[in-house]
Simulated assay, not measured.
Amino acid sequence: MKIWFDLSNSPHINMFHDMIRDLESRGHEILITCRPLANTIDLLKQKNLEHHVIGEHYGKNLYKKIFGYPIRVFQLKKFLKQKNIDLAVSQSSFHSPVVAKLLGIPSIYTNDNEHAMGNIPCFMFASLVLIPENLPVEKIVKKGGSRKRIRQYPGVKEGIYLWQKGAEIHAARKANPPDNKTIYVRPEPLTAQYYKGGLNFLDSTLEALQDKYSITILPRDKTQLEHYRQSKFSAIRVPEKPMHFDQIARECTLFIGAGGSMTRELAILGIPTISVYQDELLEVDKFLLEKGLMLHEPNIEPKKVQYFIESLENKDPDLQLMDKGRQAYDMFINEILKYSK
């Protein structure tokens, strides 16, 4: 079977890497497309995944997104037309199910962000929609999904690809405990259509803390890279290329995330995590907060960070979520293999 993955944003690489290698080991052919958004291309190169860059990202402006949407759909359709694809698989690629429909092939689509407008055509056209168990089916139905084509998977999306790493990372942290001074920060998703929160709102807190702690900013794009390389952040490390996730997870005393998958990744691994997301929380974030796996402090101040670090107790990975991640991974693989000829 020839399977097309459209990895259109940075988190998709970690999510699908092991699954892609697994499918390849079973004899299936994989074709990957992507677009130049955030750290996507750098991460694909880091993981040695062969890929084709198709189209571009049109920024946060809604009108540019609407204009650019059919352009990339057409570009993907043209590129894939003679590729003899059997199945399309994607996470939050708003183009994939539509292109698959135009090509006359089935598609599997998954998303855990119920606020993104781009989901609507995907929910309408995907052959199968997979959502986490904590996201009510009714919310997908209201946005065009057919109840018959929706299935819920166990746990949260991040567990699908972290279940194999949880115990290993925790053992490494126990063998070499973090130094209680290492903070990693992932800024806000400034180009995302769904994000309505503030920009650069962490600046004053980071300036106040940079001489007390070892702070690393994990920028989403060149705009954030340039912003945090200003002289006022001189004591903060801002790597130009994406860091390996395992290194972050092993070194991190505290993770501060302004939304997105990385915040949830660190939280379910039992690493102290504060979400500073300033927009309406997703159902999956509410679930993690209820389980006590992270805090939510949208207007965090330096004193709060210092107090939190001083009172830290290293947690074990949530083994239930890790086990559910393994179950969800098996479910994804089985659903994909159902389309094998």
Results as ranks from 00 to 15, higher is better:
8 S>H: 10
11 P>T: 08
24 E>L: 04
28 H>V: 07
50 E>D: 10
54 I>T: 11
57 H>L: 08
58 Y>N: 13
59 G>W: 05
60 K>R: 15
64 K>N: 14
64 K>D: 13
65 K>W: 12
66 I>Y: 11
69 Y>F: 15
70 P>I: 06
73 V>D: 15
73 V>H: 03
77 K>T: 08
81 K>H: 04
89 V>D: 06
96 S>E: 09
96 S>R: 03
98 V>R: 02
98 V>C: 04
126 A>H: 07
129 V>P: 03
132 P>E: 07
134 N>D: 14
137 V>F: 06
143 K>S: 11
151 R>V: 09
163 W>L: 00
164 Q>Y: 07
167 A>C: 00
170 H>P: 02
173 R>I: 00
181 K>L: 08
186 R>A: 10
190 L>M: 13
193 Q>A: 14
194 Y>H: 12
195 Y>S: 07
196 K>D: 14
196 K>F: 12
212 K>L: 09
221 D>C: 05
229 R>N: 15
234 S>Q: 10
242 P>H: 04
242 P>M: 02
246 D>H: 10
247 Q>N: 12
249 A>T: 00
255 F>P: 01
262 M>F: 08
266 L>A: 05
273 T>I: 06
275 S>E: 01
289 L>N: 05
295 L>A: 11
296 H>T: 02
303 K>F: 10
305 V>M: 10
306 Q>A: 13
310 E>D: 15
311 S>M: 11
314 N>Y: 14
314 N>D: 13
315 K>D: 06
319 L>H: 12
323 D>R: 12
325 G>A: 05
328 A>N: 00
329 Y>Q: 03
337 L>N: 12
340 S>Y: 09
